[in-house]
């Protein structure tokens, strides 16, 4: 994947050809292929720009503190383009968030709350929180993976902002939040069936029964 991205970046025109000549060599033989594969990238690397990638956080005081306090709670600490990402276990998400808000880290501002859908993964939903501290001026990202039928702890008691944002995540992804005061759809009609932002919800797929009933369109275009 990363090889494919290099040519559009800043690579001269002759490089794609190089890749083509290298590619057929790979499936030629089992053992030899492995030895041959690392060669083309090594040859390409010097001229191509280094692509941004996920880097493990080292020497991050927040990660150290969290690891110390929640030994089983923090799955990983990474950064991408300088933005730190902390992945936590779902069971301890509520505790971690409460700590981040209340402790001296003072992440008092929930910038955004959203969800990602990795179809095919047993824990397909990924909750994403952006937190900001008005005290230190830091912006961090917290992630937690959940299965489609798992309950996610609601953040609405920690930040009021989360109320509508969680309703939106419920509306679009069907995430069930435990402890939310008023979990119902927000943008779509209440009797709508399906969760549109899930990856298995085709863009042309609509709740046809709903459309027939409410818009009185008999023949809904496929």
């Amino acid at each position: 994947m990363s090889e494919e991205n290099k040519p559009p970046g800043a690579a001269p025109e002759d490089q794609p050809e190089q890749k083509k000549s290298g590619a057929p060599a790979a499936p030629a033989g089992g053992g030899e292929a492995k030895a041959a594969q690392p060669k083309p990238p090594a040859a390409k690397k010097p001229p191509a720009k280094k692509l941004p990638s996920y880097e493990e956080l080292t020497d991050d005081p927040l990660l150290k503190d969290l690891r110390g306090r929640f030994p089983n709670g923090i799955v990983s600490g990474q950064s991408f383009l300088g933005q730190p990402i902390y992945t936590t276990a779902l069971e301890l998400l509520g505790d971690v968030m409460l700590y981040l808000r209340g402790s001296e880290w003072a992440f008092d501002y929930l910038v955004d709350l959203t969800c990602l859908d990795y179809l095919g993964d047993p824990k397909r939903l990924c909750m994403v929180y952006h937190l900001y501290s008005h005290k230190s001026g830091r912006l961090i990202r917290i992630k937690a993976r959940a299965a489609a039928d798992e309950m996610v702890p609601s953040m609405s008691t920690i930040w009021r902002t989360a109320d509508w944002l969680e309703r939106e995540a419920f509306d679009m992804y069907g995430v069930e939040f435990s402890g939310h005061p008023d979990l119902r759809r927000i943008l779509l009609p209440e009797d709508w069936v399906g969760y549109p932002l899930r990856k298995d919800y085709d863009i042309k797929l609509q709740d046809q029964a709903w459309i027939r009933k409410h818009l009185r369109i008999r023949k809904v275009p496929e």
């Binding site: 994947m1 991205n5 559009p8 970046g9 692509l51 990638s53 991408f80 383009l81 990402i85 955004d112």
Partner: peptide, 15 residues
Amino acid sequence: VPRIIKPPVGEYYSG
């Protein structure tokens, strides 16, 4: 700018 925009695997929050 490349003809086809294909960012590498990753994520960014631009506020």
